[in-house]
């Protein structure tokens, strides 16, 4: 296990010197995507809450940093803030929303929770459109050339790699902590957990906020990686890609979702995109993603919880 992780890390560390620039760029994006997936897995795989609105946190983190870097859009004057500061503020803003959403929604049970959270990103997208003079509407906006994570591509790559590693380590730490153990207990049997004195709502809410924090950070990182922000960060296709990655890797297994995220993101943006180009099909590469998702759900409909249980058994 350990040597596998070290080996893959070593490969990733030297890779930029052997592959073309476009692949380096794509890998950098993938690292950030990995954080989307593990942060969703924290709430879905460990706390057992199906949150279909995870992209809300990603988007809020993204727009927070983008707007703080372009305060004239908000109609306010701010001193020039360093990028790392606004990225962290993006994460904190996501936590604030996570707390509010969690406090209201976590009372709802499975079905209703899924429904409410599925609707939230759509509201956000609508608001982006209505206040288009601030948020740039469906066209999004550019945070500005020169506000990238680093001026060189290699720099961006390593920052993004380091960010992923930090987030993975933090997540592992959380999972191994007493909080993580209590979350697992809640996931396995909520009533029993409550009976033995675990404050279910509190711990679920904590998990929700943590998940939101990492997602918000990742969303903000994404903005400064690609220097643009737009409603795609809120949108349903991104949510489905995250879910697909986590489900393929195996929910609640830390490393599973990471591997799943690499597979799906590279498959989507590299293999599928290439198939579409080579065959000059006039379709979006997302079509393959949806077909894959449908097939996977059909193949193992017992879905998320059972799968985890079987793997743990």
């Amino acid at each position: 296990m350990r040597w596998l992780a070290i080996l893959s890390l070593a490969i990733l560390a030297i890779l930029p010197f052997f592959v073309p620039q476009s692949v380096v760029y794509l890998l950098g994006l993938t690292f950030i995507f990995v954080v989307y997936v593990i942060s969703w897995d924290l709430i879905a795989g460990y706390a057992g809450q199906i949150n279909l609105g995870h992209t809300v946190f990603i988007g809020i983190g993204a727009y927070t940093t983008a707007l703080l870097q372009n305060p004239e859009r908000l109609g306010i004057i701010l001193p020039h803030l360093p990028i790392w500061l606004t990225i962290i503020l993006g994460g904190l803003m996501a936590v604030a929303f996570g707390f509010a959403i969690g406090a209201i929604c976590l009372r709802l049970k499975g079905y209703y929770l899924a429904l409410v959270t599925a609707i939230l990103p759509l509201i956000c997208i609508q608001l982006l459109n209505v206040y288009s003079d601030v948020f740039g509407g469906y066209e999004g906006f550019s945070v500005g050339f020169g506000k990238a994570l680093a001026s060189s591509l290699i720099g961006k790559y390593y920052i993004s790699l380091a960010f992923m590693l930090l987030c993975i380590i933090a997540t592992v730490y959380v999972i191994k902590s007493p909080l993580g153990i209590k979350l697992k207990a809640i996931r396995e049997d909520e009533e029993l957990a409550e009976a033995v004195g675990i404050d279910v709502v509190k711990y679920k809410l904590m998990a929700f906020c943590l998940s939101a924090f990492f997602a918000g950070l990742a969303g903000a990182m994404m903005v400064h990686y690609r220097i643009t922000v737009g409603p795609d960060l809120f949108d349903v296709p991104l949510m489905l890609t995250i879910i697909l990655s986590a489900v393929i890797g195996g929910l609640g297994t830390i490393y599973g979702p990471i591997v799943g995220a690499f597979m799906i993101y590279l498959a989507k943006n590299y293999v599928f995109a290439r198939i579409v180009q080579e065959l000059s099909l006039n379709v979006s590469d997302e079509i393959f993603l949806y077909i894959l998702l449908i097939l996977i759900i059909l193949k193992s409909p017992e879905g998320i919880f059972e799968k985890v249980r079987r793997m743990l058994a």
């Binding site: 499975g110 079905y111 599925a118 879910i243 449908i294 759900i297 409909p301 879905g303 998320i304």
Partner: peptide
């Protein structure tokens, strides 16, 4: 049998 899966599919 799996409500969330119905939503996803």
């Amino acid at each position: 049998g799996y409500e969330v899966m119905v939503i996803l599919i």
